[in-house]
Structures are given as C-alpha cells and as structure tokens.
Amino acid sequence: MTVTSRRPVLADLVRSILVAVFAVLQIVVSVLTETGATHESIGAVAREYATPLLAADWAFAIWGPIYVGFLGYAVYQALPGQWGRQLHREIGWWLAFSAVVNIGWVLAFGSGWVPLAELLIVMLLVALAVVFGRLSRQPAESVLERVVLRGTVALYTGWVSFAIALATAATGAWMGLPASGALAAIAAVVVLLAVSVIASWVVLAGTAVIGYSVAAVWAAAGIALNDPPAAVVVAGAIAIVVIIASTTRRLTTAGNPMRAAWG
C-alpha cells in the first residue's frame, strides 16, 4: 500500500497557482467576448447557427454561478493547508485544463470557428467527467468543499452535458445540414431525449446529484422554452420529468442522502 504525503511540494504550488490564474482568466475572456470587445458574443454566433436545440438567452446565465464557484474553488485549493491533499493532486490539473479548454472554446466560438469550438467543448466535458468521477470515490472534507468544489463541478458538468448537444447542432448548421423543418425537429427530439437518459444515469450513479440535476433541468427548460417546434417542447418537458424523477429516486434510496445530494 502506497502512502501519499500531504506535505506540499513544488508541483502542488505550481498547480495551485495555475488553477487560480486560469480561473480568473476564463472570467476575463468570457466578459470581453460577451461585451463584443474581442469577438462576437456567444449568443450572437449561436443565433447565427440557430437550430431547435438552441437555448433561450436567459439559460446562459448559469455561467455566472459556474465561474463564481470555480473561482471559489481556486481560492479554496490555494489555502496552504490544501496544497498537499491527494484530492487536489488528482483533480487540480484536470480543472486547470478544463479552464484552458473553456477559454479556447469561448474564443473559437466567438470567432465563428464552430468545428474547433465543438472539439474543445468535447474536451471540456471529458475533463469535467474525469473530475466528477474522481470526486464520487471519496466524501467531502467539509461543507465548504461541498459547495465550492463538488457543487460547482456537478453544476458545470450538468450544464456542459447539454451544452455539447447545442454545440453539435450548431456545428451541423455550420456544415449546411438542415437547421429548421421536420428533419431538424426530429433530430433535436432524439438528441434531447438521449441526453436526458444519460443525465438520469449519471444522477443514479454519481454524487452531488443536486447540482448536476439543477443544471440539466435548467438546460432542458432553456431549450423547451425558446420557442422551438412543439415536439421539442414536449421532449424538453419529458427530459425534465425524467431527470427530476431520477434525482428523487436517488435521494430516497441512497445509503447516504447527504453525500448523494451534495457529494
């Protein structure tokens, strides 16, 4: 059995600094992009390649709490007593990578490089999935950790799980595939229901399910309420019901409801 020391080393310091730097930088880049200071806003590009899977503008407000939570984690993991924790050694580099990829996604999509943005958001989901999975293997050390780390990662992963579907639809529109009409509506319904099934499986298998479910329901509602075809509205409603039902079942059958809910 290998015992890992909690004594901080140089790599811990470097990792801690990079997480903090990229946490701030991704906020700066996002603000500059959304204000049009560097590129078109994400919303403007998304509307340019609109499909039935496009979420309402208000749905993208979820990035606010995600960025604030990520910044909170950056401060938390930078505390001297946290540097040497094995948990941060396992997930810190992945979260730093996720911030870099997110910055690249924002810049690429804002520049209209939709296929590149698609690749980057897939990489973002992979990074978040790794962190989400590793967090599920051990309980939180404190309430603060549950909020700024596990809650943030769960919220972020839930949102990106649906955002990747939106990005893929936009990529299809960029490539010239039908962005409206019956075929586009059918494709949107299939994708939305498939993502909701995957989200329900994550809720039933993972931890911090409240944060994940809130983001997933928020995304599904954003799609359903953005004046899409009626079939997409129905699919969105079904997705919301399935995710909420799965969450309720997980919380009522889990051996440790607190951990299931908040990690």
Rank of each mutant, 00 (worst) to 15 (best):
G176M: 05
V232H: 05
P80D: 10
A56C: 08
L10N: 05
V14C: 08
A216P: 04
A245F: 00
W174Q: 06
A179E: 05
A220V: 05
R89I: 07
T207I: 07
L10S: 10
S161W: 01
L25S: 11
A173L: 03
A11W: 04
G222E: 04
A46K: 04
T33V: 15
V19Q: 09
S196F: 06
V9C: 08
L95N: 13
R6F: 04
A184F: 01
V202I: 13
F132R: 15
L25E: 06
A11C: 03
S161Y: 01
L144E: 07
Y76M: 06
A56I: 03
A231I: 00
L193S: 09
R146H: 02
F162A: 12
A187G: 10
A44S: 14
L125M: 14
I238G: 12
A230I: 06
V68R: 09
A140R: 10
I210H: 02
A220L: 14
V29L: 10
V24F: 08
L135P: 04
A215V: 05
H88V: 12
M258W: 04
V100Y: 06
W218R: 07
T168P: 00
G72R: 02
V209W: 01
W262Q: 01
V122W: 11
W83F: 13
S5F: 04
G110S: 05
A165R: 00
A245W: 02
V153M: 11
T2R: 08
S41H: 11
G236L: 12
M1T: 10
D227N: 13
I91T: 14
P115F: 04
R259I: 01
V191N: 05
